[in-house]
């Protein structure tokens, strides 16, 4: 019987598993940016209701929050091709990389959660801010862009950071579509050697390390923007 923990293999597997970091970061950044955009639109629809669209937005948020991300990934993975086939474009499906289904499902997922974060941040800005913007002649749109959203952004920065970190860790679920991110890389080599524990410890430490870096960046951002208020 060999040793309980193969330290040599542990170190050897780091480069391979770390090879999944760029993919994980890419998913995180894309889903975060697109998710913020979706979240903003949905938040605004709930603050300034537009009949049918607002109802749709409410159902969307409820669905995203009420179903597991893993299920949403599968729905995108198997559902989006159906949409292509429905529009008689089925022959394109095989050319689409699995990563796109991950971008779609993650963006929609982030958008759903983000909408509530953004809505809360906007609603928390004192009423007098909008009134002051109106009183110098700004339209609602200009006031939103120049006055309300920047303040909402600064105040909700810690929440955004939290969501970013959660999202990064959630990218580990993308392995189910065989997108080569950290977890997928780990699973592949673990399957080959059966040294599961060594490999998953590497994965865990990599996630942790990235999150530590992100936390530091966030701390700086908060300190920077916190000074103004």
């Amino acid at each position: 019987m060999g040793s309980l923990f193969d330290i040599e293999y542990f170190f050897k597997s780091i480069p391979t598993i770390a090879g999944g970091i760029p993919e994980a970061m890419l998913i995180t950044v894309i889903a975060f940016v697109v998710g913020c955009a979706i979240g903003l639109v949905v938040a605004l629809l709930r603050i300034y209701p537009k009949r049918g669209l607002t109802r749709l937005a409410i159902i969307y948020v409820s669905f995203i929050r009420g179903t597991p991300l893993l299920v949403q990934i599968f729905l995108a993975y198997y559902g989006v091709p159906l949409i292509f086939i429905f529009f008689k474009a089925g022959h394109y499906v095989s050319g689409i990389s699995a990563i796109w289904f991950i971008y779609i499902s993650f963006s929609l997922n982030v958008g759903g959660y983000m909408s509530e974060t953004i809505r809360a941040a906007i609603v928390a800005i004192p009423k007098g801010q909008m009134e002051a913007a109106y009183s110098v002649g700004m339209t609602t749109t200009k006031a939103m862009v120049k006055i309300i959203l920047p303040q909402a952004f600064y105040s909700t920065l810690p929440n955004l950071g939290n969501q970013f970190i959660m999202l990064l860790k959630n990218t580990s679920l993308a392995f189910v579509t065989s997108v080569p991110e950290i977890m997928a890389e780990a699973k592949i080599i673990a399957g080959r050697t059966s040294k599961f524990f060594e490999v998953y410890i590497v994965a865990a430490l990599l996630y942790w390390a990235i999150c530590l870096v992100l936390e530091q960046i966030l701390k700086r951002l908060e300190a920077h923007y916190g000074l103004k208020r």
């Binding site: 009134e131 200009k142 006055i147």
Partner: peptide, 26 residues
């Protein structure tokens, strides 16, 4: 124009920017 009881200055702008922002955007 209106002056409010609780000032309602824009906290993310300097004094100068508070006055300038309307001139630029409006």
């Amino acid at each position: 124009g209106m002056v409010f009881q609780s000032f309602n200055l824009f906290p993310h702008y300097t004094a100068l920017e508070n006055v300038a922002v309307g001139l630029m955007t409006v």
